[in-house]
């Protein structure tokens, strides 16, 4: 801080001394009494209304983050389901007899059969691409199952090692693509941090303009921006309360 660094351009002890001697005005006693009485009335008005919210803020935020993350992961898995992944699902494995060759075309017909799919396949939304025939090199379902099942018991349908290597190679090749998928989302965030704040044009405006803008953004569905604006509003106008229709973070 400049004052701590002894910058005399911004501080002058002799001036401060003279000012100290001159500045002796005080508010009248009636004001003191009125303000103190008001403070006591407020202090006795009951517990803080926001204390519960403050206590729960962190756990609720964490829970919201978890739910959001899980939703995002599920959405990404749904969108990222490609013929490769679909072909690797264990569902068709049960339908195959030990000696029966793999026939992907028969799958849709088998879907009508009373055999229920495994729970993993049930819970997953299958895109239309699921019915696309896998490449010839993927015609080894048991091997694929091993790729995803890790230490699963080997089945009698164990395929020759050649296709297994290919499947593993393709799955390996697909991983970087899946990993790189969220990358474009990071760059706009980085760009946003360098951009001027959302409230740039409100800086010199009175509090009612801020409230108006918050309401506009909330109505327009810009929830995140509105929340950021509410935070900045609270910082700039700590004495102001927000209208009830504003959703407060």
């Amino acid at each position: 801080m400049a004052l701590n660094s002894g910058d005399e351009m911004e501080h002058d002890e002799s001036l401060a001394k003279v000012y100290r001697a001159a500045a002796n005005e005080a508010p009248p006693a009636r004001l003191d009494a009125a303000i103190r009485a008001a403070s006591r009335r407020q202090a006795g008005a009951g517990p803080r209304p926001l204390s519960g919210l403050r206590t729960w803020r962190v756990p609720v935020s964490l829970a919201a983050m978890l739910v959001l993350s899980a939703t995002l992961v599920l959405m990404m898995r749904e969108e990222g389901a490609d013929p490769l992944e679909t072909a690797l699902e264990p569902a068709p494995l049960r339908e195959l007899a030990p000696g029966r060759p793999f026939e992907p075309q028969a799958r849709s017909a088998d879907a009508q059969a009373p055999l229920p799919p495994p729970p993993a396949a049930q819970s997953r939304v299958r895109p239309p691409a699921a019915d696309i025939a896998p490449p010839a090199s993927l015609a080894a379902p048991p091997t694929a199952q091993k790729v995803f099942a890790g230490n699963a018991e080997p089945t009698p349908l164990a395929a020759p090692p050649e296709p297994r290597r290919e499947v593993a190679a393709m799955a390996e090749a697909a991983r970087p693509m899946m990993r790189s998928a969220p990358a474009p989302a990071a760059s706009p965030a980085a760009a946003a941090s360098a951009a001027p704040p959302l409230w740039q044009d409100l800086i010199d405006q009175p509090s009612d303009k801020w409230i108006q803008r918050i309401l506009e953004w909330q109505r327009a569905g810009r929830s995140a921006d509105a929340v950021a604006l509410v935070r900045e509003f609270r910082r700039r106008f700590p004495e102001q309360s927000l209208p009830a229709e504003i959703h407060q973070p």
Binding site: I35, A38, S39, Q42, R48, P49, L50, R234, P238, E239, Q240, S241
Partner: peptide, 9 residues
């Protein structure tokens, strides 16, 4: 008075 009113937050 504003300070008193804003105490909760």
């Amino acid at each position: 008075m504003n300070l008193i009113r804003a105490r909760a937050s």
